[in-house]
Design a protein around this nucleic acid. Structure first.
Lengths: 241, 241
DNA sequence: CGTGTCGGGGCTGTATACAGACTGTCCTTT
DNA sequence: AAAGGACAGTCTGTATACAGCCCCGACACG
């Protein structure tokens, strides 16, 4: 693995895990020393993280760890809904290969399994992986590199990803109801794509993303569950400074 | 201006103008020598252009000038329509400041002027500038940094921008009709935002982008007009290699 | 004549040196 | 005592040196 990639991944981990608090200045020399690399790969890694949106350039030069207003995350989630809706509509309008549809149904069935009793340890992480896979497959099925790339950029923000809040949601009293609704959306989208119902597929994915917004609402009222959200330490409550 | 930025802009010009043909390999030393900078800023500039999508990493290392399939551009334009529709809907739902609406109306009026007789030299370039400004203002009015950033990334591809085909469209026999339709869309969107009609605003912006797809269709059948399109040299006709 | 191997050239990734700009502090002056 | 200026430390932007890798071509051998 290249030094650049290594620095990028480790730095992202440090940020997302909250070890680097929002606002912390990241100077090239300090990061270089901390991660044991020279300035050149550190510089490249910082530039990429800035592209992702996890750090931002500050006026005095260099970068700082970003923080995110709750509204901003709501916007990002809704935007993901719109983009995934776009992808679903494309898949429906242009037709999806039977193999892709079958695979999506299989994933849905396995998510059903993972969320039905008996509840075992690790069921939720199984669900998270399956869910992520489902969403990726949906985007791929749309068959547009441009769209896939764009969605990838939105999802790069950890809390905007389709699985960002699923883990925290386990602590939610309505966890079961939300999961049932989510699975109903999944089923509906596949059916809509199969029947070439573009508008329905699009509407469903938009509504699907609203579940994440509900989860965010809840998590913001529950500081303990916030720690289960990747990047949760970067979220600032409504109206700080 | 920094060397990095200078190299980035000049290299982009060389690519978009067609001086660097698609497929041409861009090695750091060659670009550095050609543009009179050292490898360090060249490297940074290439990375940014890769982010924009104008160049792509090639397996043997380094980058090459990208080419774009017609379908890909159609996809990018439709995606822009969806995103601008999203922005318009947000503006409508959340309400737009009166000043922004007034400014948009003013821009529309000036576009009317620019497209009505007497046709002067430069009318079209006026229109292009006003149109670009209108679209930027619309995005800004949505009031979401996340959405603005995302749209900016799609629009970075020159032919996906709202004004990409307007200039070439001047050669189109239906130029006047298309412009009239576009202005009708502009008027309708402002009205919809003003009346808080989110769905209408969104639908109009989507339809608006379809005009660009029509223009692309035409331009692809008219090699001369293709040269008026920024980045036209990068477009490859349906099914090359 | 075809194939395999060896060598050279060029390229990327990385480290590091250096110049200019900036920030923050401390001292001096009013 | 407060304000302004000078200085030191640090940072970024840039250039450049160096190592390892890959690709291509040439040459020799079967």
């Amino acid at each position: 693995m290249s030094q650049t990639l290594s620095v990028q991944l480790r730095l992202r981990d440090l940020i997302v895990s909250g070890e680097m608090p929002p606002g912390e200045r990241l100077s090239e020399p300090s990061v270089a020393e901390r991660l044991g690399a020279s300035r050149t790969p550190v510089r490249a890694a910082l530039a990429r993280l800035a592209e992702e949106g996890l750090v931002e350039p500050i006026p005095s030069g260099g970068f700082a760890v970003r923080s995110f207003a709750e509204e901003e995350i709501q916007d990002a989630i809704e935007l993901r809904g719109t983009l995934e809706g776009h992808a679903a509509r494309l898949a429906a309008e242009r037709g999806a290969p039977a193999a892709a549809l079958a695979e999506m149904k299989r994933l849905i069935a396995r998510m059903d399994e993972a969320t039905s009793p008996p509840i075992r340890e690790g069921n939720f992480t199984d669900y998270v992986a399956l869910n992520a896979h489902f969403h990726e497959l949906l985007v791929e099925t749309a068959g547009s590199a441009v769209v896939a790339r764009q969605i990838g950029r939105v999802v790069a923000l950890p809390f905007a990803s389709p699985s960002g809040f699923v883990l925290a949601q386990a602590a939610l009293p309505e966890a079961h109801r939300v999961l049932t609704a989510a699975q109903e959306h999944h089923r509906g989208v596949v059916e809509a794509i199969e029947h070439r119902e573009g508008a329905r597929a699009e509407a469903l994915m938009r509504e699907h993303a609203r579940l994440a917004r509900r989860n965010l609402d809840f998590v913001m009222r529950n500081q303990e569950s916030l720690r289960l959200v990747p990047g949760g330490a970067l979220i600032r409550r409504r109206s700080w400074a």
